[in-house]
Every structure is written in structure tokens, then in C-alpha cells.
């Protein structure tokens, strides 16, 4: 499967799963219907692609009912309408009932820059993280989307998959739940989450740092973090700043460290424009990342030993 957008790949993979697995179902609230129409999923499986109309509470409740009766539901919408509007349904209709579903969002933090705050949800991962038992994936490439969705279809737990318009140039050889080490250095350890990887790599060029890649953030790979211990630790997340700070603290235990959390600030950003404008305003472009990382580590230490690396 070769679609180059994460969302396109999502529709292709789920359509393939609908074809091969009688227990797979999709629940939509008008958003995403076009994608599943184009793949033929609605025509071939009209009973298992359920569009409830613009009814997000019902969307999650229906997913809970499907799961209670033994189905594996995939639920999809724009991020704020999937996670924030029906949040009590996510808490009660899935987790409290003892069943799981796969929630797949698109739009993330500011993909819809020109649409404004109503269509942005940088707090989504932090919110899901208040609930027990959820796996949270933040893929950075369509190939990773496919791998993570097929993994999610292989069990019955609750999974949140955060898709984005922005992708890395190349997929990483990820294992669900594990961080991938790109390179090793001594001045700092940087965890790059999902679509931030290419910018983190560019920002850290010539710096003597370890770079870990995370396409799964819950569970947080504490073993990888502990193994890559550094007195200077940086987490770059494409959603609310500090979302994984407590995970780093838990992984480090009593070992001394400093932490720089980079992500989308909590303050409401009342601007429209393009995603790139918001990325730059939040210091999440390569130049902004490099500025903050170098200032955190210290100019002299940042470039010490392995300056020829990369």
C-alpha cells in the first residue's frame, strides 16, 4: 500500500482489514466518509462502516457497544471532535465497560491553522493520558501508520493513533512500544516524537547528542530512556508541551537530570495562517528547536566531541 498521506494510508489499511476480518468495524461522524467511500469500504461493507452523522457522543457509545458484542471498532474524526468533545464517553463507554477501541485522529495540534482554535487539540495526548490502559501512537510516516494500525488490530486494548498532515521523509524501523535509537552522543539525549523527527535531526546536526525516536509514547519506553541516561534530557513532542515530562521523571528515578520539554504551549494562539507559521511561532521548526536545545545544553558543551557526526 503506497498512499503518501497518513490519512490515506489509514483508510487503505482499514479497508483491507474490513475485507479480511469480519469483526472489524469503522465508526464515523460524517468526517472521513469520503476517504472510506474512495477505498470502496462503504460500498463493500455498508453494515460495518457506520456513519452516525454529526453525533460524536453516539460515535463513541456505538464503538463501546460494538466492542461489548465482540467487534473491533476503529473510530475516526478530527482530533478535537474525537477526543475532547466526547471525552466522558471515552472514559465510560470504553474503559469503564472493560472494552477497548482504536481511536484514530487527524488534525492534531495545528494542521488546521487557518480554521482556528475550534479545530485544534494540542491537549489530546495529555487528556487520553489521564485514562488507564491506553496505548498512544504518534507515527511520523505513512508506513509507520500501517504498521501501528495492524498492530492495534491484533489485540483488543484501547489505542489512540494520532495522525498528522506533516510526515518525515523516511519511515523508521519501529517496534510498537519501543523507542528507536538514531545516534549516540554525550551532551544530551533528545527524544523526538513522531513527525518532529526530521526537524530534530536537522536541529541537532553537529551536536554531540543522542537522538531517540518515539512513534509510541504510551507506554513510554522507560527502559530506553534509562539506558540513554544523560544529565541533559530533551523531549520534543508535537502536542502540549510537557505531556511526557512525568514519564521522563519516572524513567530517570533518582538519577540527577535536567529536562527541557518542547511542544505546543498551553496559551491559546489566536492566529490563523499556515501550519508552518504556527510551527515557527511555537519554536517547533528546526531553527527554533536548535536555538532552545543549544541554549539548554550550553554552547560549549553542545558541540564537543562528535561534531563530525551527521
Amino acid at each position: 500500500m503506497g498512499t503518501t498521506s497518513m490519512r490515506g494510508r489509514f483508510a487503505e489499511v482499514i479497508t483491507d482489514l474490513l475485507d479480511s476480518r469480519p469483526d472489524v468495524a469503522v465508526v464515523l461522524a460524517d468526517i472521513g466518509v469520503n476517504q472510506f467511500s474512495e477505498t470502496g469500504a462503504i460500498a463493500h461493507h455498508p453494515d460495518r462502516v457506520v456513519n452516525v452523522g454529526i453525533r460524536e457522543q453516539l460515535m463513541i457509545g456505538v464503538a463501546g457497544g460494538l466492542a461489548l458484542a465482540g467487534m473491533r471498532p476503529f473510530v475516526h474524526s478530527y482530533t478535537p471532535f474525537l477526543v475532547q468533545r466526547p471525552f466522558e464517553q471515552i472514559k465510560l463507554d470504553l474503559g469503564h465497560q472493560g472494552v477497548g477501541a482504536v481511536l484514530v485522529s487527524i488534525g492534531g495540534s495545528y494542521d488546521a491553522a487557518s480554521e482556528g482554535r475550534t479545530h485544534q487539540a494540542p491537549g489530546d495526548v495529555a487528556l487520553i493520558d489521564t485514562l488507564p490502559g491506553w496505548e498512544i501512537h504518534v507515527p511520523g510516516h505513512p508506513d509507520e501508520v500501517e504498521l501501528l494500525l495492524r498492530h492495534a488490530a491484533s489485540h483488543d486494548r484501547s489505542v489512540y493513533v494520532r495522525l498528522a498532515d506533516n510526515t518525515n521523509a523516511e519511515p523508521m524501523p519501529i517496534v510498537p512500544g519501543r523507542f528507536h535509537t538514531l545516534r549516540n552522543g554525550d551532551s544530551a539525549t533528545i527524544v523526538a516524537v513522531g513527525p518532529t523527527l526530521d526537524r530534530v535531526v536537522e536541529a541537532s546536526r553537529g551536536l554531540d547528542v543522542t537522538v531517540l525516536y518515539a512513534a509510541t509514547v504510551r507506554p513510554f519506553d522507560r527502559a530506553a530512556v534509562a539506558a540513554a541516561w544523560s544529565a541533559n534530557f530533551v523531549v520534543v513532542e508535537p502536542y502540549l508541551e510537557g505531556t511526557s515530562a512525568h514519564e521522563v521523571a519516572a524513567a530517570m528515578g533518582d538519577r540527577p537530570h535536567r529536562l527541557l520539554s518542547i511542544g505546543v504551549p498551553k496559551a491559546e494562539h489566536r492566529h490563523y495562517g499556515r501550519p508552518a507559521d504556527h510551527q515557527a511561532a511555537h519554536g517547533l521548526d528546526a531553527a527554533g528547536l536548535r536555538r532552545r536545545i543549544v541554549a539548554f545544553i550550553g554552547e560549549s558543551r553542545a558541540c564537543s566531541r562528535h561534531s563530525s557526526v551527521l
Binding site: A25, V27, D47, V50, Q57, L58, I60, G61, V62, A63, G64, G65, L66, A67, L68, A69, P73, Q89, D93, Q97
Partner: peptide
């Protein structure tokens, strides 16, 4: 809403 999902 859960009942609707079960019925489906």
C-alpha cells in the same frame, strides 16, 4: 448509545 452499538 451503547445499546445502539450492541444492536448493530
Amino acid at each position: 448509545p451503547i445499546a445502539v452499538g450492541q444492536a448493530l
